[in-house]
């Protein structure tokens, strides 16, 4: 199999003010790979959720960095998003499921972001490596 092709690699301070730019870059790359409009929004959403978690929670002691790599695979076409931070360990795959059933007064939305990522990405992987959180999200251009 061919190695994924790097589309863009971005490293920024983990601040919510940087989110829009990073998220829209994902949308742009998804569009260039031919993803339909609604799927592009879902990709942007998944990327935003991971990045927002990093900006808000990964560095409680101060400011850190995060990096995003957008990669393309061919045959079949996939967009791969690799997100790395060096903050506190957070395995998105082990996060407790959100509350999806309580009535309005009791409902909390904790964990909803990560849940949406797992629902919307075709594959989500997590690895803690050399004191870094590495999240890989895969989106297939054609869904079965």
């Amino acid at each position: 199999m061919l190695e994924p092709r790097l589309l863009e690699s971005i490293q920024v301070a983990a601040r919510t003010g940087n989110l829009d730019r990073l998220v829209r870059a994902g949308g742009r790359h998804a569009a260039s790979l031919g993803f339909p409009r609604e799927r592009i929004s879902e990709i942007e959403l998944a990327v935003e959720e991971i990045l927002a978690n990093i900006c808000l929670y990964a560095y409680p002691e101060g400011e850190g960095k995060l990096s995003v790599k957008y990669l393309a695979e061919n045959h079949p076409v996939k967009l791969v998003v690799e997100i790395v931070d060096s903050g506190i360990p957070f395995n998105i795959l082990n996060a407790p499921p959100p509350d999806l059933t309580s009535e309005l007064e009791q409902r909390s939305v904790g964990g909803l972001g990560v849940y949406l990522v797992r629902e919307l990405a075709d594959a989500a992987e997590y690895e803690r490596s050399e004191s870094m959180n590495v999240v890989r999200l895969v989106f297939n251009a054609v869904t079965e």
Binding site: S41, A52, L104, L112, G113
Partner: peptide, 15 residues
């Protein structure tokens, strides 16, 4: 477009 932060704000407004 809406993300979980948007859902949270809708939930808070509803409550």
């Amino acid at each position: 477009y809406i993300s979980s932060a948007g859902l949270r704000s809708i939930l808070v407004a509803g409550k």
